[in-house]
Write a protein that binds this DNA or RNA. Sequence first.
RNA 1: GCUCUCGUAGCUCAGUCGGUAGAGCGCAUCCAUGGUAAGGAUGAGGUCAUCGGUUCAAUCCCGUUCGAGAGCUCCA
Length: 598
Amino acid sequence: MNFYLGSLSVSTKPDMSDKRLPIDVIRHSASHVLAQAVISFFPEAKLGIGPAIENGFYYDFDLDTPITDEMLEKIEIKMNEIIKEKQSFKHFDLPKDKAIELMNQKNQPYKVELINDLNLSSYSFYENGPFLDLCKGPHCENTIRIPAIKLLTVSGAYWRGSEKNKMLQRIYGTAFHDKKALKQFIFQQEEAKKRDHRNLGKQLQLFSINDDIGSGLILWHPKGSRVRHIIESYWRDAHFDANYELLYSPHLGKEDLWKTSGHLDCYQENMYTNINIDNQDYYIKPMNCPFHLMVYKSHQHSYRDLPVRYAELGTVYRYERSGVLHGLMRVRGFTQDDAHIICRKDQVESEITDVLNFCVQILKTFGFHDFKTFISTRPEEKAIGDQQDWDMAQSALENAVKSADMDYEIDHGGGAFYGPKIDIKIKDAIGREWQCSTIQFDFNLPEKFDMSYINSEGNKERPYMIHRALLGSIERFFGILIEHYNGKFPTWLAPVQVQILSIVDKFSPQCEELQKALKAHNIRTNIDTSSDKIGAKIRRYIKEKVPYMIIIGENEIKTGVLSVRKLGSNDTIQMTESELICQIQNEVTHKGQLPTKV
RNA sequence: GCUCUCGUAGCUCAGUCGGUAGAGCGCAUCCAUGGUAAGGAUGAGGUCAUCGGUUCAAUCCCGUUCGAGAGCUCCA
């Protein structure tokens, strides 16, 4: 819960003898200075909360005047003045009634609300200079110990995170131990901005989103489609190798199907409205599960048939509120790399282990090597399935993670009502974490769809069901890949692998000949025989981030040796056609290339 | 959905304190045939997102709708 006094989340005691205070203490102190600066400009501002957060701090204000970017600059200047004044942070406690009296006197209704709700025996306050705040602390001894600050953005935030409450203005800022660390942080932010998949998607002509088509609906351009096709081909081959069967299922289904599955009860707010066909209501699918289960149910299964592994690149549509849409990362129509494993109890653990290893294999192929796993267990309230099944499933998940030798954390009570799960987070080239993969037990759907198999005694038995997605959504994963590689796709993924450049346009026939030869080896090649100078052409394909450029001129034609320029290198390497083909094929076979260092 | 900010050529962006607009890249044509990050010239392209209001006059001011961005909330 993030709506308490931010200070409550700071548990570290400051050690004043240590020159390096905990970063949260510095940031939290900086948030007080921020509030102090804002109050100095707007004495009427009502204070919300001001905690330290992962990459900095914020403070919420109820203030009628909108805070502009220029104002933000002024506030930051003021903050630096306050810091230089070396104001001491003084701490004192008050009983509840006195605390409320003090905050009423300061005209701070939100603080009064917090005091009332916290219900403690005494309330802690911090004071520095003219500024006073309800706060558990701890703080720096004085403001000069806040070494480097920067204000970042202003945005809206609901009081206590609830849409029902008033929207306050939130100022985000950050603080670091020294100017160098602050600079590094700003550099990282800028780096993230530079490799924003929305910009790269436009520059590299990978995809677009068209207003006339609709928000959150992706148009895959030829180059993006090419990359997607490569991803999907690899994915399909890998799934066949791992003994999955691949399915295709329709994009909509009758109302009764979604009633049975429970989606109309539990998920309707994310589903698009009904389509009436021949007096029957149909719904566009937000998930693939019911279709896969229907395939399972299309005939009777023996215990000998299990496990059944059905996978599909299934395109689903979900209503997402307009404000949450974001490039490829959050869309309204997307393709899940979905699978459902239906198995016997005695197969559960090995299935989970296999899925986990398979998942790691696939993620590594795409250049991700840093993983964190989270096991979410049975929620306290309303969960279906008996405790034995939950225990069995949870230990299967834990054993699988252990045997894969992966670090994991347990999120107690964090599972869905229908079963426990493992989520896997991957770290990208600039240290950001993304959750793509999820492996979930489902004790619900087998019940609802009355799934069964015939056991060795000839009796009907309920199978176990595991739902999993490895890349998550192809759209989102593509967005993450673009940013991970900064648009410089490794050779096996690059939409164009080789760009052939002629020095002079009269060498076109030789270029075409080479292209034909490379194409015969499944190498994706384009030719530029335009009348631009070679320097201009090289510049163009560096910007297009093509892995290989081959320059064809008089010398090459005479010697029969190719001049090859690799992306990221300013030198040309001489190699024969077969050497080049061999090198590219080698990269394509091995995959898994890491992004270049930032 | 909510708060704030924004919407000018295919792209990135100037600009007009109210008198219907400009650059660079890209595109087209021509000249140039040049060896490793931009050769030169000419030209085409815009109801200044939409609808309405104020005004002699709106791209600019006010309001509406649509869309985008940063957040909140939610989530793959």
